[in-house]
Design a protein around this nucleic acid. Structure first.
Lengths: 159, 159
DNA sequence: AATAAAATGTTGTTTATGCAACAGTTGTTA
DNA sequence: TAACAACTGTTGCATAAACAACATTTTATT
């Protein structure tokens, strides 16, 4: 059992981020499962609950997700009846995304899932600490976006 | 182009973590590619550079990674000649992991990759800010581990 | 006006990851 | 001592994600 006691170094930031991210995924997957969705569609649906009538590329740019990944997530949301895709009348390349009634009903579900995770992840944090941590995360995210900037994906849609 | 300007809400923490994590992955993948490795083996190798003669389960527990994932990462490291796996003389179920010479030579490579990412992600942070952010990330990671605790994976090996 | 470059979404491929099931081994309990 | 539970690693399966290539359309350049 001495094996379990010999790891005494501090985990690098990348490892901490990985742990947090994977936990987020696990929880979202669990919570969305009853709705026939999974973590891969979470961000896309959250984005659309906030704002419809956007094109896929906008969604991809917002969360810096690969457009192929977005296309697949969006397809799943459409297949599941959560969204509707409409050809953009002004641009034949693009597709506009809208929520269905079923999709709209997901808003409170998504909100509570998000809150649950947030509450758990920030357990023991004061409001000030949480806000400060968010500031740091935003700065880190912005830095990371610059690090991997390519194909315009460093260009965020509005933030 | 108004699509690109209509996303004005703050990204939830899960989304920020996801952005950072994916960027980390992209960069690690890029940097390890010339060595014939990829991001999936990064943490395992880092762990072994720090401490050999551990069993796979220890590694899995340390970074809260699924043991199947660890088994596959370790297999790749062995296939690539970076590590050696030896049956544990005291426990016929377990395998002990050791670096090869080739694996040892990776230590400075891994270190500089890690530093590069860290430097980029914390660009513009003072030392105090970075330390504070790390404290928060550790606390978040600990919270997340508790959130998804199962199968003893909440039990970290030494931290 | 013609050509070249960029934009938008789709599809193929590979990889990492978690969940699940399993085989063999070790530790605990009755 | 035997039965049962827990441990350790392996493998199957499904999913998300990035990279790459591509077709079509729109925009920019010549």
């Amino acid at each position: 059992m001495s094996d379990r006691r010999e790891q005494n170094f501090q985990k690098p930031p990348g490892a901490l981020i990985s742990i947090i991210n994977r936990a987020h995924f696990i929880i979202i997957n669990e919570r969305l499962k009853p709705c026939g969705l999974s973590a891969g569609q979470f961000l896309a649906l959250i984005c659309l609950v906030r704002k419809q009538n956007i094109i896929q590329d906008t969604l991809a740019r917002h969360f810096h997700i690969d457009k192929g990944t977005v296309a697949r997530a969006v397809q799943k949301l459409e297949d599941g009846g959560f969204i509707r895709r409409t050809p953009d009348p002004e641009n034949r390349r693009a597709v506009r995304l809208f929520l269905t009634d079923k999709g709209r009903e997901m808003a409170p579900v998504l909100h509570s899932i998000d809150l649950e995770w947030e509450k758990g992840a920030f357990s023991g944090f004061t409001n000030e600490e949480k806000e400060q941590c968010m500031v740091y995360l935003r700065r880190m995210a912005a830095n990371c976006i610059s690090l991997v900037q390519k194909n315009g994906y460093g260009v965020d849609a509005g933030e």
